[in-house]
Every structure is written in C-alpha cells, then in structure tokens.
Amino acid sequence: MNIWIDDKRVRIFKGATAGDALRRFSEALYRQVAAGEKRLLNGHGHEVALSGELSENQRFHTK
C-alpha cells in the first residue's frame, strides 16, 4: 500500500501500522516520535499513535 509522509510516498506492506510506515520512511524520525520529541499528525492535523492502522493513500506529517 502507499502512504504519504511529509509529502513523500512510502510503499509499505498491506496491514502495516503508522509506525511501520514511519520506520520505512525514516528510522530516525520513528525514534523521535516514539520518544515524544516529535509528533505524527494525520492530514487533518490530529495526532496519531504509532500503533494506528492505515488505509491506502493516507497522509501524515511529522512535527
């Protein structure tokens, strides 16, 4: 499936979590989000947990 993080496409296996997609995108960013130094936001600006389930073409931003 395709997920968009910070406007870049991430190809990830079907059934992945938001954390899986973020790890695929950047292990460093994943660690920052897991440590609470950064936040993972959905396309509407709401915070999403790394365990969140995904749907095709979902958009995320890190902040």
């Binding site: 709401h46 915070e47 999403v48 969140g52 995904l54």
Partner: peptide, 10 residues
Amino acid sequence: IIGGHSHTAI
C-alpha cells in the same frame, strides 16, 4: 461520530 481504528487523538 465517536470513532476508532486509526488511533487518532483529537
């Protein structure tokens, strides 16, 4: 709408 699944905090 009270939702779930995406683990979104609003």
